[in-house]
């Protein structure tokens, strides 16, 4: 079975699951799962394929969330335009801030993106135009697809919107990965010097990768704002969002289109269910368990869960090859 077929079957399963299980809690977790899988795919473009570790993707997520929220709240413009505008603004911001940062390598680049993320958070906290630390409450509009507002219990509608956006992100990721640009990015990841020696304009392709990644991240952020209907800077810009994206992608498998899906499928239900089961005490028991599990997974499955699956499949292949030889 090839990669495309597996991905297609996986998508159908994801699309049908919320229909089969009617619990609203479950559907909410499915929405978050698809959202974060999408964020992981977007982050994978710059870090997994191009090898530039970004710890600042919450900045783009937040820019997307704020743009779509401000569009509805200040101007009464449909959130769909807000999603697109958020993506474009994030793309522009990403190009401006990462151009100087691309001079840096390795950890220095990672810390620079972390710094950029923190600066943007601080700016939004003290920016009066977007209500600073108070946050924005998205006003109620007529329910329907156009306004992206539904009955709060109608999680299915939200799910299929984010699912469609996720498929869009996957298509873009797939196009990037299988194009000439994808090969350029992987060359840059393996050896910056070799890529330059081959005549690849490394800064330009890293910029393209960062721009696409930021654009997609912001669109997903825009959806998030419309879904939760209230945002403040500490919800959409914190380091913990950047880190969650990093965690689930590394956990699933870096630089692999299945990685973020597998990582999010494990991490999001894990964090949500530990919160539902242990979070009621308000004493952080859920995060103690979550933290420990992350440590354990990192220690015992260092190559990501995709690595585990590949190992099993490789063993299977080796055994298949051996069998006819014996006969």
């Amino acid at each position: 079975m090839n990669k495309k077929k597996i991905l297609f079957i996986l998508l159908i399963v994801i699309a049908l699951l919320p229909l089969a299980i009617k619990s609203n809690n479950f559907r909410h977790i499915m929405i978050l799962f698809v959202l974060f899988a999408g964020l992981g795919e977007a982050w994978n473009i710059i870090t997994g394929y191009a090898g530039q570790t970004s710890f600042g993707h919450a900045a783009f997520f937040g820019i997307g969330a704020y743009t779509s929220a401000v569009f509805v709240w200040k101007f009464g413009i449909l959130p769909w335009y807000g999603l697109l505008a958020g993506g474009i603004i994030a793309l522009v911001v990403a190009s401006i801030v990462s151009y100087p940062a691309f001079k840096l390598s390795g950890h220095y680049f990672a810390i620079a993106t972390l710094a950029i993320g923190e600066i943007i958070l601080q700016v939004f906290v003290s920016w009066d135009y977007v209500a600073g630390a108070t946050g924005i409450m998205i006003p109620m509009k007529e329910r329907g697809l156009l306004n992206m507002q539904f009955h709060p219990r109608n999680k299915l509608a939200y799910f299929y919107i984010i699912f469609a956006l996720f498929v869009f992100v996957l298509i873009i990721t797939y196009l990037v990965e299988s194009s000439k640009m994808g090969f350029y990015l992987k060359t840059i990841r393996e050896s910056h010097e070799a890529a330059r020696a081959l005549g690849i304009n490394t800064t330009r392709y890293k910029l393209y990768a960062m721009g696409i990644s930021a654009f997609l991240t912001a669109i997903l952020g825009g959806f998030y704002a419309q879904y939760v209907m209230y945002i403040d800077p500490f919800m959409v810009f914190p380091l913990s969002i950047s880190m969650q994206i990093v965690l689930l992608t590394v956990l699933g498998g870096l630089g692999n289109i299945f990685g973020p899906i597998i990582g999010a499928a494990i991490l999001i239900p894990l964090s949500q269910y530990t919160r539902i089961i242990f979070g009621g005490t308000g004493m952080g028991l859920d995060l103690i368990i979550f933290g420990l599990l992350v440590v354990v997974i990192a220690c015992y499955q260092p190559h990501g869960l995709v690595g585990l699956i590949q190992n099993i499949r490789q063993k299977g292949v080796e055994e298949d090859e051996r069998t006819p030889a014996r006969g």
Partner: peptide
């Protein structure tokens, strides 16, 4: 990045 994952989990813990 895996070491980072582990120490981040540890900091949460």
């Amino acid at each position: 990045l895996v070491a980072l994952l582990a120490t981040f989990g540890l900091s949460l813990f």
